[in-house]
Amino acid sequence: MEILRILISELPQFAKGTLVALEVLAGLLIVGLVLGLAIALAEIFGNTLIKFLATTLRKFLWAIPQLVLLFLVFYLPFDLNRMLAAIIALGLCSSAFQSQIFRGAILSIQSGQLEAAKAMGLSKPKIIFYIVIPQMIRLSIGPWTNEFSSELKDTSLAYVVGVVEIMRNAKYIIAYTYGNTAAVYLFVGILYFTLTRIGTSFFYRLEERLWVPGFEKRSG
């Protein structure tokens, strides 16, 4: 099997690509997490103006395709590293989705808790940090895992601005081993599938770990 020999000899190349993809993934998830959380908190706890601004921002980030935002950031009038452009653009897109996840999680916390906290004399920032966020984290891990796996696959979009991630590496390998296109892409498919599976099973376990026994979601 000629193709197996090629794939095995190219494993270091794939490993490099995987590392780059994981870097992009980590970066974009952090950008999306910070901005998404900010949008969610602004939409729930902000005053009318802040609410309006946050909702508008979220809607626009939601409506623009990732690739378009990717090119927009890449061709900004000042020079930006390819990798950084990919992280910022994909992170901005992710923030719209993550904010929806956090918003849903926060809204499913019983409102009585906030009233009780207020009655105990806690200030608004303290309520957010000690009451809302600890519960929000636990409630949002499940849906957040979906976002994680879809963003893991979307790191492949960074290919179009020339980040040397898995897809770009695959393209190089196909070019200098002359052909074997279908086999290399099939291998890349298995690689992505494995990464997705490892990632999601990690988060499922984390969700179980962090769960407070007896603490239940408000149903219905």
Partner: peptide, 11 residues
Amino acid sequence: RGTPCLLQLFF
């Protein structure tokens, strides 16, 4: 569901 759309397109 575990593989990127771009990859499926290239395949």
